[in-house]
Design a protein around this nucleic acid. Structure first.
Lengths: 205, 205
DNA sequence: ACTCTAGTTGAACCGAGATTCAAATACGAG
DNA sequence: CTCGTATTTGAATCTCGGTTCAACTAGAGT
């Protein structure tokens, strides 16, 4: 038997277990037992904490998103130069590889959003937050004179997030010639046109 | 009882029924009975034609993709002017609205591709075909002197397809401020930078 | 050390969906 | 018109996942 835990702790475990199970079996294909097994518990215990499975799945998706976003914010927090900041931001929005758990979960949501309003709202909110993030970087760079924006910052920002999303899907689907590095290059090619900045990475990673 | 049909006809019906059922319940959430009901048959009849459900689902996805692609090719077939052709192509890659069945099915695949190699291959193939389609238009326009490509045509083409994909997801998720028209504009904004052509639509729709 | 309770198990139950198959039947060939 | 076969049904069976719940702890509070 797995160690006993407080309600709060166990709920975190379950959210994580649900995340793993959904990645393996899909948002609508996942079963209670699979989640229980991932958590090292029995189905009864899962129901004790989440009498309604749907709630757990939603919380898991929400948590996955939050984590994804927070991680990005953290990665770029220390960088002052707008050009470098933009480059790092782009990289942080892409999966590290086809098995990147965070992005896998997000991709999972795309289809579900078409038939589930809650998921649709989650995804839309994430999109808008990322757009704001980019917009801030772009505006700052423009104010400092390092970017010469060819279009409204919102347009550029939306297109950058869109490109990230799409290449995320490509990488997850194991496109033979688009890996994370290649995707960064493709997105940077667009960013160069839009910002008029050569955007040369100084540091790797 | 539903009319009797030849093997070939019935299989087409089933593929269509599976398509509808998957849109409603997801690729992994769909059940045999739901497909049977959509087709106006009993589960036994479905199994008679497809002893293995997985095969039917794969064929349905394949057919959906083929239809999506063919429709695009058809829509642009009569247009000579590269600029107009590009505009129409962009529009034809987006859903007509949040309930567009064809795109809904494609979105469905995004997550599944992460755990199913067959689906991943299907999606990747579609992506590459679309890239070629755009590349041809771009090269033709450049040869005629109406486009001044700011980058390699493959880069531009890939980014255009990526933008389409991503905005398709946004529209399906009912983004409050991104509808099909808005998405076309966003993508065109990018295309203008990349081709140096103002890309003004002459005809609506 | 002794509750007392929250967390967990495991077995029992229930219903749903997949699968099988004999029987029914529509339809085409001759 | 009749036969033969391909298609479909519907019921029986089987399996599996969800749900319930009484019993069993582990551990916190006193």
């Amino acid at each position: 038997m797995s160690q006993r835990k407080s309600k709060a702790d166990r709920r975190l475990d379950l959210i994580d277990a649900a995340r793993r199970a959904m990645i393996q079996h899909g948002t609508e294909g996942v079963h209670l037992n699979q989640i229980a097994e991932e958590a090292g518990l029995t189905s009864g215990a899962v129901l004790y904490h989440y009498p309604n499975l749907r709630d757990l799945l939603i919380e898991a998706h929400q948590a996955g998103m939050e984590r994804f976003y927070e991680r990005r914010v953290k990665k770029i927090s220390g960088i002052a130069d707008p050009a470098q900041k933009l480059i790092v931001t782009i990289r942080s929005g892409l999966p590290e590889g086809p098995d990147d758990a965070g992005v896998r979960l997000l991709c999972e949501l795309g289809g579900a959003a078409g038939r589930n309003r809650v998921y649709a709202t989650l995804l839309t909110t994430l999109f808008d937050r990322q757009v704001s993030m980019y917009q801030t970087i772009l505006e700052t760079g423009a104010a400092h004179g390092v970017f010469t924006l060819a279009q409204d910052s919102e347009i550029i920002a939306r297109n950058l997030v869109a490109l990230e999303d799409a290449y995320g899907y490509r990488i997850i689907a194991r496109h033979h010639s688009i890996d994370p590095e290649k995707a960064v290059e493709l997105i940077l090619d667009h960013a160069r046109l839009a910002t008029g900045n050569p955007l040369k990475p100084t540091t790797r990673r």
